[in-house]
Structure formats: structure tokens, C-alpha cells
Amino acid sequence: MVEDLTVTYPGAGRPAVKGVSLEIESGRTLAVVGESGSGKTTLALALAGLLDRRARRRASRLEINGENLLAARRRRWRQLRRTDISFIFQSPINSWNPTRTMIAQVRDAMSAAGHAGRMPELLDLLGRVGFEDPERRLADLPHQLSGGMLQRVSIAVAVIIEPALLIADEPTSALDSTVQSEILAILAELRSEADLAMLIISHDLSVVARVADDVMVLYGGKVVEQGAQAAVLGSAVHPYTRGLLDSVPRLDRDRKTPLPSMEPGHLPAAGCPFAPRCRLVVDDCRRAEPELIPVDATLAACPPAASSTLIAT
């Protein structure tokens, strides 16, 4: 649970994350969607206490498992990351020490979390997620396993220590595109079994559609739209969310015709971050940053879209 989180890196004009609030109940998955530079990774790092030392963090609330972490020290965060917060990173090969065998590293992670006795369960779980012959293959060094295999180990270890929060930062985007769906199926299945809260970060809407209960769309560090997955993907209100959905090739769309694409644009110093790329932009958008307001089934930070939706209905 986070309220009004803002993170600023030194030397940056705008905050990387600005006024973000979120809450994930256990057993549910929140997907944070955004493109490079949207602040999605900064948000994840803030929730795991992994922000760069020089980053400035402000928030009115930051709690995990009911514990207030606004004043938590690095040591407490380190402890939490062993027992209560699991993190799955984008690049499986960079998540493991290249000079030690997988089994040694897995054992360390398990005993640091106080679950040293559960190795047999872990081996079982690995077998179940398609990691063949775990006892023999874990004797290998990381580079001897494929990205998909390494990510299976990361996920199994992340889940078996029964964290309160599992953060997965683009867990499939460094993988061969088609191992992705297997890894997602595994994540979704384990998450519902383990009853943990999951935050998944992705730019891929098909990933979001497959695993998320709720969706939060970030643009330029701000939440521009949020709501239940079906509502955000099915009846998005914000022009950025709509643009994302429209630019994806679909089976029911004309073939060999240009896809509607949003031209790149800079982040302005004031006003709505999306204004320079927006087709609904009005003067007000460049003056004040719009707040999230309920429109249809989602919350959207776009007064012009909100009023046109209201008129249409």
C-alpha cells in the first residue's frame, strides 16, 4: 500500500514518479503498464527499498504487510527482501552470480529466507514448472541454462519463500518471445496458489491481459488511467491508453494497412505529460496537471476525454 509516492533523481527536472498511490490485496495482481521512461521501474524499486541512494523519495504512506516503512532503514529493507518481498528481474542471466552453481545460490536464498528445510519442495515445484531434472541441472552454472530455465528458477525461489509481495519487472521481455507465454502461465498459476500480492511491470498488453486483475497506466511518471483489467483494456478512456490499444495488430483489423501510431513527443515541464502527443489536447491541459477522476469503469486523468465520454453517454 502506497500513497502519494514521488521519486526524484538528482539532476532530473521532473520527478521519475509523481503522486502515485496503489494498493494490492493478497491474491491479486496489479499490472503497471508504461513505456521506457514512464517511471514503472522506479516505482517497483521504491516498493522494494532498492532505490538509488541519491534518489529523493516522498510519500504519505508506504506499508507492506501493515508495517509502516516510511522510515525503514536499509537493513530492514534487506531483511524484508529476504522474507517478505520477492523480486523477479527482467534479465535472468544478470540475476545470478555467474561464478557459482545454481544449487549453491538457490540454497543461500532459501536459508536467508528461513526456508532451508524446504529444498525438496522447491525441487518439486521446479519440476512442475517445466524445469526438467532439477537435481542434476541445478549443479550447472547460470550460463549453462537457457534464459527461460533461469527465469523458472527465479520464479520458483521467489514464490516458495511465501512473500507478501512479489514484484516482477518485465519478467518475460528478455526471453525468446515464445517462452514468454509459458513463463506467464507459471506466474499466474503460482500466484493464485500462493495467495500473494503481485505487481507486474510490463509494456506488453497481451502480458497484462493474461495475468492482471487490475491495471495502472503510467505516463511520464504519472498515473494516467487505472482500473480493473477488463475495464482498462476493454473500455479505456485516456487517449494514451486508447492509443496503446489501437496500435496493436489484431485479428479483426484490416491487413496491410498502417496501424494508428502515436508519434513520439517530449515530456513538458508543466501540465499533462501526454499533452504534446495528444489528439484531444486543449489549452487547459498545458497549464495544470489533471487529476484522476472516475469516468465509466476506470479512473482517468483526462478532463477532455471525461467530458466527451459523458456527452456520448
Partner: peptide, 28 residues
Amino acid sequence: DVSVQAQILNLLLEINRERSMAMLFISH
């Protein structure tokens, strides 16, 4: 990124149309 994918796909379509360049396009 999703918004960039559309731009690159549009570019490839344009190249195929304007230069009648054949493509073996591989994707999952």
C-alpha cells in the same frame, strides 16, 4: 515498446509497398 512496434510495422509495410521488397517475416 508497444507504441513503437506500430511505427516499425508501418515502416516495414511502407518498404514492402514502395520497393516491392520481399520479406520473410518471422514472429510468434
